[in-house]
Design a protein around this nucleic acid. Sequence first.
DNA 1: AAAACCGTCAACCGCTTGCTC
DNA 2: TGAGCAAGCGGTTGACGGTTT
Length: 249
Amino acid sequence: MEDNKREKNNNQAKRGLWKPEEDLILKNYVETHGEGNWAAVSENSGLMRGGKSCRLRWKNYLRPNIKRGCMSQEEEDLIIRMHKLLGNRWSLIAGRLPGRTDNEVKNYWNTHLNKKLCRLGKRKSNEFDDESGRQEQEQEQGENDDDENYNKKLRRFCDSHQPICNATEDQLDINEVEENKEKIMRNSTSDHSSWKYEMERGGGVVFPGDYNHDATFLFDDEPFVTYLDSFLLFEALEMQSIMHGHSTT
DNA sequence: AAAACCGTCAACCGCTTGCTC
DNA sequence: TGAGCAAGCGGTTGACGGTTT
């Protein structure tokens, strides 16, 4: 029955590219009534579109401060670095690029960067035909292995350390911080399932003092930045004290 | 000139997650 | 505790414009 209902709705909903007049209707509606309850948006605005379609159109195209057009070199570099670290976590990567959407980052990766990187890789492998080239290739392979190990260790570290406070700046309860900090010191397995998960949800994090990262990361309304900045911080510090002296340089 | 091919990107789909009751 | 719903996410599709043959 539920399936029939869904099928009916899908049949009724208009599909395909959005027309300027539809954009205008959606824009006006959201500006008047606010975001959320997208099913109601599609019903009340008179748009014959599904709620999902409205939400995506707003999020990826109509929302204020959307940046469109060419990616800068800085943005491109950041995407490559983030993708190396996080994989296809497009929304996380996009969260690091103001005005860019996950869809845009994903498309950009698939159409530009992926191919670009493949080309670079191919060109490099063709350059290694002679003996010196082979040595160079082996050395580079070693570095890549180091990089891979480094990233694996980084992920293991992230997975094994828990947040001791889950709060945004205005909600921060210092008692909670101290309480949780003690809890972690007492017992390495806290009841948080994953600190990464907590951070993605916008939580602050304090690392236990014995890792020399006794810092609290607190952020405003950009939750993903918390998570990613901590990664960048780790990179900057090279995690020497954590990685038993391993250095990427 | 036109058919075939290719690249790009907006939009859709199906699954997962989180929230409410 | 579980059902139902809304929203988020990543993968995929398809329309369209440009290029090649």
